[in-house]
């Protein structure tokens, strides 16, 4: 058996995310929020819009980094959570590759992107395909799935870099295709730095 994404998604979607009496959602070693996707898209679109041409690259890098750090810390919280251990780990037969497949199933279940691993070269390279992701709805120009890029690099590090929390800045992710520019799906290539 290997990790079956849709089965994982269906199990994890049942996990109810509700704020406590303080209006906070502690879980997976982080505080979670549940905001409209339009919020995150509007923020990214307007941040890019205010950046002058000579600072666009810095802004893009900063947007990717926001998701990257989030993906690294929250991703670790996810893969070490009781939910992941009970739902995903019983299906893991191929070590780190399957942990990655499981992490992307969670990525999908949380509403980040309907995505999956299409190719992994152990510790070297990974290709992710996303057939649907909310960032594709954002305004602006060019490839702009900053969140998917950041989180994808982070998940690769959780699987193949030094153990948490020492594995950061090992991989980077480039987006090669995007629904937001008319491609049939988004494609993300993660390679060693």
């Amino acid at each position: 058996m290997t990790v079956m994404r849709d089965q994982v998604v269906k199990s994890l979607v049942q996990v109810e995310v509700k704020a406590n009496e303080d209006g906070l959602m502690p879980g997976f070693n982080v505080l979670v929020n549940q905001l409209p996707t339009s919020f995150w898209n509007t923020v990214a679109e307007r941040f890019m819009a205010i950046a002058p041409p000579d600072r666009k690259a810095d802004m893009e890098k900063a947007l990717v980094n926001c998701a990257y750090e989030c993906g690294y810390h929250t991703g670790y919280g996810i893969v070490s959570s009781p939910e992941f251990q009970s739902v995903v780990m019983p299906m893991v037969t191929e070590g780190a590759k399957d942990v990655l497949r499981g992490a992307f199933a969670v990525f999908t279940a949380w509403g980040w992107a309907k995505s999956g691993v299409v190719q992994v070269r152990d510790g070297e390279r990974m290709v992710i395909r996303a057939v649907d992701y909310y960032e594709a709805d954002s305004g602006g120009s060019g490839l702009r799935a900053y969140m998917v890029r950041g989180v994808s690099a982070a998940f690769m590090e959780l699987a193949y870099a030094e153990p948490y929390p020492n594995g950061m800045n090992t991989f980077s992710c480039e987006q090669t295709l995007g629904r937001e520019v008319g491609d049939p799906h988004g494609e993300f290539v993660i390679t060693k730095k």
């Binding site: 929020n33 947007l63 926001c66 509403g111």
Partner: peptide, 30 residues
């Protein structure tokens, strides 16, 4: 079909305080 979540008809997504904090700091940096 899309694996998207909706609350009262609005597409929503779970993110964490790291993402929110870094987005807030990004606004300060710029």
């Amino acid at each position: 079909a899309s694996f998207r979540h909706f609350v009262n008809g609005h597409n929503v997504v779970l993110h964490c305080h790291h993402y929110m904090s870094l987005t807030t700091r990004l606004s300060e940096d710029f």
